[in-house]
């Protein structure tokens, strides 16, 4: 039932998106006809390319079973999306989040909470903004109420302040943008977990450790930061991860400005380690180049061995 509703909505919105970017109805039909049958042997990861991020997001989720695989009617959903930055290629493309929100409501979610609001002007960047005002009005934004919890099995991070919606929601979605990072070299799903913590005291501990600044100089430590990120992923594993690789920073990340990469791809999966391992290709790295990926794998968060997961790649255009 829910699945049918999702597909009806998808057909409607995809047709609208197709019209705006010059896609034909046959593309939408092809996408639907190749979507997996619900309950069948689903891939672990789907990477869908296309010129419309909204359509690609829906298609990527559909390929791994559709949002109703993750969101049950009446459930409460927390969406941790990277909207903390301002410059081109540093944030998740707004249309990727709009598609995620719409799919959650369409699957019957009772409440959908954004862990962080977009910076001023963020939503206006997408041509879909005007038609999405009702959707955004239905979506709640976290009051930034943090609970202090012990990090189970944390190696460097033993305690963290965590947004209460991430802890208390029925479903937790992690929506990140792939990009360069001056410290960890790469940021994707694993690092996006820092988005559910406040800067002080949790993220500042991850960035600089517990030592106070010496002579007003802070000491960044990539291995400590990487371990803290791996530890954060022990708190709550996402039910679904989406990585936006439509347009992103290939240099000078995470804030930019820098060289922009454009893969016009959205990746969906359930394993944050695997989805990051897969996504390193967008910034010309290998999984082994990124310390936090190996550390998270060691903690049992997921696997970086892409031979062990089933991946589908396709196109929405």
């Amino acid at each position: 039932m829910t699945k049918n509703r999702t597909r009806r909505w998808f057909l409607k919105t995809s047709a609208a998106a197709g019209a705006s970017v010059g896609l034909g109805a046959s593309v939408v039909t092809e996408l639907l006809s190749t979507s997996p049958v619900f309950g069948a042997d689903l891939p672990d990861l789907a990477a869908i390319s296309g010129t419309d991020p909204f359509t690609s997001t829906v298609a990527a989720v559909d390929r791994i079973g559709g949002m109703s695989r993750f969101v049950s009617p009446g459930s409460r959903v927390a969406v941790n999306a990277n909207t903390s930055f301002k410059l081109p290629g540093s944030n998740v493309e707004p249309a990727v989040i709009l598609a995620t929100l719409q799919m959650c409501f369409d699957a019957g979610a009772k409440e959908v909470w954004l862990v962080k609001p977009g910076k001023p002007g963020y939503w206006e960047r997408t041509p879909r903004f005007a038609e999405s005002k009702d959707l955004l009005a239905m979506t709640k934004t976290s009051e930034q109420d943090f609970k202090v919890i012990e990090v189970p099995g944390g190696v460097a991070l033993k305690e963290a302040h965590v947004d209460s919606h991430v802890l208390d929601s029925d479903v937790y979605l992690n929506v990140s943008v792939v990009k360069d990072h001056a410290g960890t070299r790469f940021t994707g799903a694993l690092k996006n977990s820092m988005g559910f913590c406040p800067h002080r005291p949790t993220n500042s501990f991850c960035h600089f450790g517990s030592a106070p600044p010496e002579n007003d100089k802070f000491y960044a430590n990539v291995d400590h930061l990487s371990q803290c990120i791996a530890d954060l992923n022990l708190i709550r594993t996402p039910d679904l991860c989406l990585v936006d690789a439509t347009a992103y920073l290939k240099t000078n990340g995470p804030a930019g400005p820098g060289d922009l990469g454009r893969a016009d791809t959205v990746v969906a999966g359930t394993d944050p380690v695997a989805i990051d391992a897969y996504s390193t290709r967008f910034v010309d790295l290998q999984p082994g180049d990124v310390m936090m990926i190996g550390m998270a794998q060691k903690l049992g968060v997921g696997t970086a061995d892409l031979k062990k997961i089933r991946t589908v790649e396709g196109s929405s255009a």
Binding site: F85, H181, A182, G183, M194, K217, A220, G253, A255, G256
Partner: peptide, 11 residues
């Protein structure tokens, strides 16, 4: 202002 981009400025 720039989240994790701040690290290298502080260094």
């Amino acid at each position: 202002l720039i989240n994790g981009g701040a690290e290298i400025y502080h260094e």
